[in-house]
Design a protein around this nucleic acid. Sequence first.
RNA 1: GGGGUGGUGGCGAAAUGGCAGACGCAGCGGACUUAAAAUCCGCCGGGGGUGACUCCGUGUGGGUUCGAAUCCCACCCGCCCUACCA
Length: 819
Amino acid sequence: MSSYNPQQLEPQWQAKWEADGLYRQRIDSGKPKHYALTMLPYPSGDLHIGHWYAMTPSDARARFMRMQGYNVMFPMGFDAFGLPAENAAIKRSIHPKTWTYANIERMRGQLRSMGAMFDWEREAVSSDPDYYKWTQWFFKKLIELGLAYRKLSAVDFCPNCNTTLAREQVWGEDRHCERCGTPVIKKDLEQWFFKTTDYAEELLDFSQINWPERVKVMQTNWIGKSSGANVTFTTEQGDEMPIFTTRPDTLWGATFMVMAPEHPLVDKLTTPEQADAVLQYREQAQRLSDIDREAADREKTGVFTGAYAINPVNQERVPIWVADYVLMGYGFGAIMAVPAHDQRDFEFARKFGLPIIPVIQPESGPLDAATMPEAYVGPGVMVNSGEINGTAVSDDKGRKNPSIAAAIDWLVAHNAGDEAVNYRLRDWLISRQRYWGAPIPVIYCPEHGAVPVPDEQLPVMLPEDVAFTPTGESPLKFHEGFLHTTCPECGRPSLRETDTMDTFMCSSWYQYRYLSPHFTDAPFDPVEGAYWLPVDQYTGGIEHATMHLIYTRFFTKAMRKMGLVNFDEPMLALHNQGMVLGEDNEKMSKSRGNVVAPDDLVQQYGADTVRTYLMFFTRWEQGGPWNYDGIKGPQRLLQDVWEIGQYAYMPQQVDEQATRNLRRKTHQTIHKVGQDFQEFSFNTAVAAIMELRNNLNDAKRTRSVTVAAWNEAVDSLLLLLAPIAPHITEELWAQRGKPYSIHQQAWPQWDEEIAKEDSITLVVQVNGKVRDRLEVPADTAEEDMKAAALASENVQRYLEGKAPRKVILVKGKLVNIVS
RNA sequence: GGGGUGGUGGCGAAAUGGCAGACGCAGCGGACUUAAAAUCCGCCGGGGGUGACUCCGUGUGGGUUCGAAUCCCACCCGCCCUACCA
C-alpha cells in the first residue's frame, strides 16, 4: 500500500487530463446541455482563497451535472482591462499589458493546480484585440439601435483616478471612488451613455429567471419604479414647468415649487432682485461636496427666485424656489411642494415661512396648519381639493389609492397632466478617461461630428508605445499617432475619441465570447450559441447584484434587438456564494496580515483537501472565517479514503445484518449527496460522505460484510467524492482497476428498497414532552404503534390514570398523547 | 430613515412544524509508545440524581399549535444594500 502523496499525484493527473482533452467541451446533440458559469476573475496577480471558494464548488457542481448525464460547459477567462494595471504602470513603470499578461500567466498555473474542469480552449481574455474588437463592435451596434448616445452632463469624477465613474462605482455615505476611496467630485463632460433606462420595465420582470430573492430585491430597489403623474405647471413668464409626483392627489395642497440649482430654467426665471442671491446659492451648492449635500438630516437650504408659477388644478399663484434637496438627475429636476403631506417640503416651508394647506384629513379630525409638528402622510379623506373632495385616501401607492386614481382622472380630463411612471435607474455612463480599456471606436470630424469607426477598421488598437504621467491622465490624449486620423466619411483630418470603455462593458458579454473565443465573423459562433445558450447556472458574489448583473441583463436584451439571440435573459439560474474571511473574522487584506494563500495550502495539504475543506466548513452562500485547525477534518477524510480505497478487503465472518446496514447506508448516502449537490448544500454533502467513511472504517475493522457490499460502498464513496476531490478519486479508481476516467462515469443509482430503514425509533410524547423511545419495525401498522406507545410504562406514569384525549401519530416518527 | 438578511454547545455548523446540536474542529479520559506526533477506543450544552431518570436550554418578550430553533407580532444585537428619488 502506497502512502497518500497529493503533491505528486495531483499534477500527474492534471497533466493526463490535459493531454487527453478530458475536459474539452464539444457540442453533442445527443445529450442535454448544461452551461455552468462562474464569474471571471480580474488578473490581479495571485489567485486568492476567495477565488478558490467561489470556483471549486462551482466546478464540483459542474462535474456533478456531467455525471448526471449532461454535456457540461464550464469555461474560464480573464476580465483583463482595468485600473490596477495602470496604477501599477504609474507606480512601478511596468507597462499595463506586461503586468496584466504576466499575471494572467501566473493565474492560469494557479487555476490549473485547482484541478477544475475548465476547458482552456475556450478561454477568453477581454484585453485581447480579438476580444475587444467585438466589444467595440457592440458599442457601434448600440449606437445604430439608438441605445447609445453622447451627452454633456455633470458626472461623478474621481480626482485621484482621473476618470469618471458610473453611479454604481460611487460608494458609501461619503460618496467615494470604488477603487481608491477618494471622495468623488462633479464634473461637466461630454460622455457616452447606454440607454439602460429603455429596459427599466423589462428589467423588473424576473419571471424567467431563478435568481436569489435578495438579488431580485436589490435590483428592484435599484431600478426604483414609482408611479404617479406628470403635471405641467406654467410659469408667469409662460414657460412650461413639468414635474413628476407620486401624490397627484395632493396637488391642491401645493403651495410652492422647488427647482434643482442646476435646472435650466433657473437663470431665465430669476428676477433681477433675486439674481445675486440665486447665483450665490447655486455656486455654493456646486462647491458643496456631495458628502454635505446628501446628508439627509441636514437642515434645508434654499432661495426664492422671485418668480411664480400657476398651479393648474386651482390656478393658484405659487412661488418658485431653488433648493439643493431637489436633484437634477431625477424626474424633471423640479417638484411641486406640498408641505402638509411631505416631510421634506414641510421642513422647508417651516424654515422659510411658506404656507401650509392640508388636503388630507385624517380620521382624528382636521389638521391645523399652524400647529402640526410634521407632515401628515397617512390615510384619510380629501379636503380643500375641489372636485375630488371626499375621496378616500389609503396607504396604497399609485392607482390602487382611490384619491390618486381620482386625481389622475381629473388631470387627464382637464388636460393638465398624465399618469406616469418614473425610475430611479439612470442610463449607464461608460466613458472612462483611462488608457487600459477598450478604446471607444469613434472619430470626431469637424464636419460630420461623431463618426463611428467603420467595421473593417476594427479593432481600434490600443497603442502600446505610450508614456504614463503621475497624474493618471490618459496617455492616449498625448499620443499623436493615435489621436490624429481622418474622417471615415470625408477624409478630413479628425481626432479620435481618447476615452475607453467601462470594463463592465467587457464583462457584460463574456459568456458569449467563451463559446468561440477565436471566431472572426461575429462576437460568437451562432452554431455554438444555438446549442449552449443561455447560461443555465451562474455563480458569483452578491456584490455584483446591481452592477454587472444588471448590465449583462441589459446587454442580452440589446443583443436580442440586434438579432443575435432569441431569449430574454442571459443566466437562467444564479447562486451567490459568501466570502471567506480571515481567521480574525475580518475581511482578508494584506494590511491586516490575515490573508490565506491557496498556493501554500496546496503545497501543504494538496488541492483535494483544500477543495473539500472549502466546501465543508460553512454553508456556501454564507461564508465565514477561515480556520487552520478545521482543515484537519477533510484531511483525515481523504487519508481514510486513501486507505479504504487501497484496502484488500476480505471478510472474516459475514454478518447479514451488518451487510444490510452498510448497503443501506451506501444507498442513503448516494441519495443524500445527489440531493445536496442539486441544492448547493455542499457542506452537508461532505458530511454525508464522512458518515459513509465512518461506516466503512467500522466495516474494515469488523470485517463482517460481504465483499460485494464492501465494493459497492467503496466505489460509491469514490464516485460521490469525485466532483469534490477529483484527483484522489481518479487515482484510487484507477488502482481499483476501474475504467478511465472516474469523471466520465455516471452518478451511481440509489435503490429505495435498499435505502429503506427496517426499524424506526418511535418517539413517544405525552403532551408534547418526550417520555419514551420505542424501536419498532418500520412496517408496523399505525394502530399498533399507538397501542405500543400507550402501553409504555413511562407513558402510563405521566397519564396518571387519565384516558388520553387525543393521540397524534406522525408516520414513521412520533406519537404524541394528549391528556 | 427605508429594504434585506442573520442570531443554535468552547468553535464551524446540522435540523424549515415532530428526538435540538448530524458532520467536523478543539477539549477531556484511556490504549499504543522510552517519549512525542500520528493512529485507535470512549466522553463531550447546563443543572440535579448512586441510578432508571428528571428539570432547564436555539438573542429577549408575547402569540398560534397536540407539538415551535422553524410560523406570526413586538423588541434587542450583528452584517449587507440603499438613502432628500418628489
